[in-house]
Design a protein around this nucleic acid. Structure first.
Lengths: 252, 252
DNA sequence: GAAAAATTCTAACATCCGCTAGAATTCCCC
DNA sequence: GGGGAATTCTAGCGGATGTTAGAATTTTTC
């Protein structure tokens, strides 16, 4: 929005590099573990993180390389040492995003006892999907929020991963129907897209201040599975429909 | 993407104005009805239409005034005769968008018999909302798709109208609960946001080629009201859960 | 601690963007 | 059909943007 780095006064070599800020502390030795790579691979991470957050907040076209650079504590030109272009940066953010959601959901479901019902698998999937979007989900939320803004060729390169994730859900829903837990008339494609819509839209309005994520996620799954109207699956006793139930509870 | 209007060859006055294309046919006399205004108010409309479509497709920051101008069959500078700035153009598109959805939903619901159940009112609202998004809905879909990309001050100026629409739904949901048609434990705020999410996300994927809008809209309401799992409200006979129901019907 | 490799910075280029001034053209009314 | 108003166009300004080249600096290696 504003000029962040005015040109150096002539004679001065460095015009106050943007808060060189605590040179990542480095630690004893990067141990070459999972992500604390060879050396200043750390910078790459910092740029990616900054890009994910900025893309998510300002959109793709609305984000400047300088925005990202400022957030990553370096200058715009330096980004090109780590990434070929703004497009590739976007591509990687999008890719990491779905990969994480996909992994989180799969992991959560595979951790369930093998004989659990398809419905419970779906419920777990919903909760995991939401969690990965809303809890430290800069990549995941960016991935869903700005996919539609990405250039065509980036979209198509990301598409295979997205398709795989969709297939995973398609499969789950079919199993639920095969088990007789989804009525035969229900259009599974539509149901799946509406489910994605309900879940993904939450990044537009969810406010972590407003309540515990656990409660939110549980209630969310309930609403998706049983709809706005229907009674919660468990008890199914008619009393819940008793007159006078119109008291406002904790509506936002 | 590419340079659409190369500078005029010196000596040539007009470098082929971009397909002056069938000067809107004009008709006998504008009759000064609802929207066929005084005179070249028509141009204003053309610009607005082009802006709605382009904003929706490319996002706000991703849209150039030249993009809009090309789609509206004039040059970028001419837009300023009708609108003060790109921001105001956006503002008007967003405003028209919610106004239309809001009006369509309200109209549909008010056309119902007065003694109809809250549930049926909600169902009608869902169908009307979807219809106004998906059928010739350049403004409506733009309004929901790019609101989050709009500059803060534009958002806040649009907010009152959006809030009014949200209140309308809040009211309907409360009445449904008061009538005992929504269980007391259901969080109405969450339900409403999930509903909006499911509906609004449809502009990201709905393909009019894939089937009649009427069928789509009906099935959509059913899914939102009763969830993915529950049986369709009408019959409620258990047979629908019969074994072997896992045949794929018309999944996308 | 010096040489080599890796990383970051500066400065600039070419392009495009939103926007404006003023000339050119078109429209409309009498 | 002539004249004044309405509308559109051209041309360009100032600034921002993605990107690049090469110098400067830091880090690593011996």
């Amino acid at each position: 929005m504003s000029a962040d780095h005015p040109p150096a006064a002539p004679g001065t070599r460095f015009p106050a590099p943007p808060e060189r800020a605590a040179r990542p502390a480095a630690g004893p030795a990067p141990a070459n573990g999972a992500d604390a790579g060879p050396k200043s691979e750390r910078t790459r991470q910092r740029i990616l993180d900054a890009a994910a957050r900025t893309f998510r907040d300002k959109g793709y076209a609305g984000t400047t390389l300088n925005d990202i650079a400022v957030a990553a504590l370096l200058r715009a030109g330096s980004i090109y040492y780590h990434f070929d272009s703004k497009e590739r940066l976007l591509e990687e953010v999008l890719d990491i995003g779905i990969a994480r959601v996909s992994a989180a959901v799969q992991r959560a479901i595979e951790a369930l006892p093998p004989d659990i019902s398809p419905t419970e698998r779906i419920r777990t999937g919903i909760e995991a999907h939401l969690r990965s979007l809303l809890y430290h989900g800069e990549y995941t939320s960016a991935s869903f929020r700005i996919f539609g803004q990405a250039p065509r060729d980036v979209q198509s390169r990301i598409l295979s991963r997205r398709r795989a994730y969709a297939d995973y859900w398609r499969h789950m829903l079919r199993e639920a129907r095969a088990a007789g837990e989804i009525p035969a008339e229900r259009d599974l494609g539509l149901a799946r897209m509406f489910l994605f819509g309900a879940l993904n839209w939450s990044v537009e309005w969810y406010d972590p201040e407003k309540g515990a994520l656990d409660d939110f996620v549980r209630e969310a799954a309930e609403t998706c599975l049983h709809g706005i109207l229907a009674p919660p699956g468990a008890g199914a006793d008619g009393e819940r429909y008793a007159e006078g139930a119109g008291v406002v509870r904790r509506e936002r």
